[in-house]
Write a protein that binds this DNA or RNA. Structure first.
Lengths: 111, 111
DNA sequence: TGCTTATGCCTAGACAGTCGCAGTATTGGA
DNA sequence: TCCAATACTGCGACTGTCTAGGCATAAGCA
């Protein structure tokens, strides 16, 4: 009964995290999730049931381009890269997050 | 077509913001929303369609107690106050938010 | 040898939470 | 007179995450 939605906080920030991850170069889905979890120090966990729908959504919106390729291990993987629109979206979402996080901090971390 | 969900980032943090607001003393719903918007510098906007459902939800979960009272303007208002459980929930959510925000920052605000 | 774990992708349905919008009512100012 | 602000309620739409299943291959270990 403690928590119904395991990570409600992720709502709205996952897209930005994926965009930012891809700003460092093309990656495949699984690698994106690993990067986010590792870099955040496991503070942000990306479930596969959230990851793949997010990638399709973002591709559909023109923020990402997808292409089948091969991983370092020789596995068949779908590589994603940022589009120009995706880069613009990243800038917008980063700004929004920065402002929102600052606003929340003013209240939540006061005193 | 730009943004479907106006404030997806609010997901999961609204409860914490309300709890924190009430940690400063009892308030009625409308006043809670005003406080959050003012204190965050308008970075966090609380729509009424989000506010009241959140209050009912939190009361149902035992985090808040509600009682009809009167505002400074003499209007009939529903006053909310934090319960002991609410205080514990605030501590938990604050910790969760702090950790999550730090994790996101490590990725999003890098470079 | 067989089992488990890690890598990699996909999808369906459940579920929670925010938003838009409508409604109700009172008060004060332009 | 009309509009904005105050204050609460309810509903349906929408979006996005999660659970939980499926598939397939490779590596590590007992």
């Amino acid at each position: 009964m403690a928590d119904k939605t395991p990570n409600a906080l992720l709502h709205g920030s996952l897209d930005a995290l994926i965009l930012k991850t891809l700003a460092g170069g093309p990656r495949h889905g699984y690698a994106i999730a690993r990067f986010i979890e590792d870099t955040s120090g496991e503070a942000v966990i990306v479930e596969e049931g959230s990851l793949y729908p997010a990638l399709y959504r973002m591709e559909r919106r023109g923020w990402l381009d997808a292409e089948w390729g091969e991983s370092e291990l020789g596995r068949r993987v779908k590589m994603y890269r940022l589009t120009r629109q995706g880069r613009a979206q990243l800038a917008a979402e980063t700004a929004a997050w920065r402002e929102f996080a600052a606003g929340v901090s003013k209240i939540l971390l006061a005193q």
